[in-house]
Design a protein around this nucleic acid. Structure first.
Lengths: 153, 153
DNA sequence: GTCCGATCTTGACTTGTTCAAGGAAAGCCG
DNA sequence: CGGCTTTCCTTGAACAAGTCAAGATCGGAC
């Protein structure tokens, strides 16, 4: 996990100004992947006691736009962010508790799959989400109710 | 495309009461795939002049729960619905205008892919979204701004 | 050290969706 | 066909996530 100078370097390399909120948000995303915005606001405030939620939203947008973080948003979940970018990996999502786990892409380069018929589209990414039930949810409730993904609150 | 008696049969087969709103919503979803909720409310009202938005939300939830329609929700877009269910097909989404196109699954049976490492998950579905630019957007703006998917309003 | 423009704070506002209470209608039964 | 029960729909309010806008503040070039 990169330390503060590394993070600053990342920001500068992307042509962004280095500010305390940006470093803190970027650090939080590196520290814990797949957090939603609300959790990231909390994690950012733990690093830097006062930041507005708006600042976090802005920073996340900027970081996403310049490719320093990736935004993912499985159905039924608010936006989540992760720092693994550029390696085209995919995700496993638990239908019961909402847990997200990374999976490496089997193929390697983006887009790792190509559709049978591209309908004339210029495709640049294939996003894959594997839906299922994580080990602990499988154990606790062998056959759970079908519901849209709800994260354990 | 199924006609009214077919739709009623579908509802009954799923163990649901047949009501005018349900038939109308189901018909609308069959008629035009990939509409969002707001558009579906409009389409439903065209068939049946007064329906509350809440009824449409409820009906869509029920239809989704019993598998008569499928709910999809690409990043940055509100929920959309389609009547093709059970064939495990995937989607192509235009980053510029938000257009969604169906693509048949190359493999055939769900889950059509398996991750390199399933982390102990019991996986039942692999959802694939191909991101790119549709033919008309490619023509009009050879290199467009990167932005979260916005549908042309 | 100064200055300019990018960035953050504050606070209100949209949008998409859900909750809750009561009235209406579907379908069973006689 | 008419009543009864249960499910469904209407109305209206509430909620969550995210966005907009105006002004204060800070980063970094000079």
């Amino acid at each position: 996990m990169p330390d503060a100078p590394d993070l600053e370097r990342l920001l500068r390399a992307a042509g962004l100004r280095v500010t305390r909120p940006r470093v803190a948000v970027l650090d939080a995303v590196h520290a814990q992947p797949h957090l939603d915005t609300e959790a990231l606001i909390g994690a950012t405030r733990a690093r830097l006691d006062a930041v507005s939620h708006q600042a976090v939203y802005d920073v996340l947008r900027v970081l996403t736009d310049c490719g320093l973080v990736r935004r993912i948003q499985p159905q039924g979940s608010p936006a989540r962010y992760e720092a693994r970018v550029g390696d085209n990996h995919h995700h496993l999502v638990c239908r019961d508790c909402g847990t997200i786990v990374d999976v490496d892409c089997t193929i390697g380069t983006a887009p790792c799959l190509t559709p049978s018929d591209d309908a004339g589209f210029a495709i640049d990414e294939a996003e894959v989400v594997f839906w299922g039930r994580c080990p602990s949810c499988t154990d606790s409730r062998p056959s759970a109710p079908r519901s849209t993904a709800q994260r354990g609150k």
